[in-house]
């Protein structure tokens, strides 16, 4: 009920987001026995700052519908060299079978702790996907609660959208939208899957997102590689 209340608050625009919104648009699906290694890169250039973020993760489906991923997050900012920035634990619970209902749904919970600081972030939200012929619309709606010794207690909202054309497995072009209170970005993205053997496969994603709600320069490039086995 609390999550629903937070989401309603977020939708109504009463909460604000001011962090990095461009990341990954999550899909609601979990496959039993799925194990994965993931690497993500985000390069964001603004008029004042350059930021480089990387994260590596190990994920495992621990039941037919529940996926758990553990992350190490590294960042390089204008003030600091690249180094370990945070740890994160993520749970994704698939609520519906693919195609069973009008749309496919999952819920997510992430807990992140900043390295060497008593600062925390908890993210919860819903993941949605709907097929329209050979295209798929995927949306994520998150509520983010931050607290700690060096950050202000606040609740933020995030919205992510991907509209993808399932052209061929290796190359699926898409448009991605990322939104928080102070950020509205949109841009082209691509994803694909290369099969190796049995459950072994490599997924890749890339996106070029430009912030369009403000006049200054703010471009993000994101890249994801995932090895499933």
């Amino acid at each position: 009920m609390r999550i629903v209340t937070l989401l309603l608050l977020m939708i109504s625009g009463l909460v604000q987001a001011d962090g990095i919104v461009v990341d990954k648009v999550y899909h609601p699906y979990v496959l039993p026995n799925e194990t994965e290694l993931e690497w993500r890169l985000l390069s964001r250039q603004t008029s004042e700052n350059n930021l480089l973020g990387q994260r590596i993760a190990f994920g495992k489906a621990i039941s037919e519908r529940l996926m758990v991923e553990a992350y190490l997050v590294g960042e390089k900012t204008a003030d600091e060299d690249f180094g370990l920035a945070a740890y994160e634990l993520e749970f994704r619970w698939m609520l519906t079978e693919q195609g069973e209902k009008w749309a496919d749904w999952a819920v997510m919970l992430e807990v992140e702790k900043i390295h060497r600081r008593n600062d925390w972030e908890v993210t919860s939200g819903i993941v949605f996907e709907k097929e329209f012929g050979r295209t798929s619309l995927t949306m994520n709606l998150f509520a983010v609660y931050e607290w700690g010794d060096t950050i202000k207690d606040e609740i933020e909202g995030e919205f992510r959208l991907k509209y993808r054309y399932r052209w061929i497995p290796e190359l699926q072009p898409a448009i991605e939208v990322y939104s928080g209170e102070d950020f509205f970005g949109i841009g082209p993205a691509f994803m694909g899957i290369f099969r190796i053997d049995r459950q072994e496969q490599i997924k890749w994603e890339a996106g070029f997102i430009s912030e369009i709600s403000q006049s200054g320069k703010d471009h993000s490039f994101r890249l994801l590689l995932e090895y499933e086995f």
């Binding site: 039993p32 026995n33 693919q98 399932r166 061929i168």
Partner: peptide, 12 residues
Amino acid sequence: EFDSFDLNREKV
């Protein structure tokens, strides 16, 4: 594992 890109389905 049932797999179909045409059908957009995967199932163990």
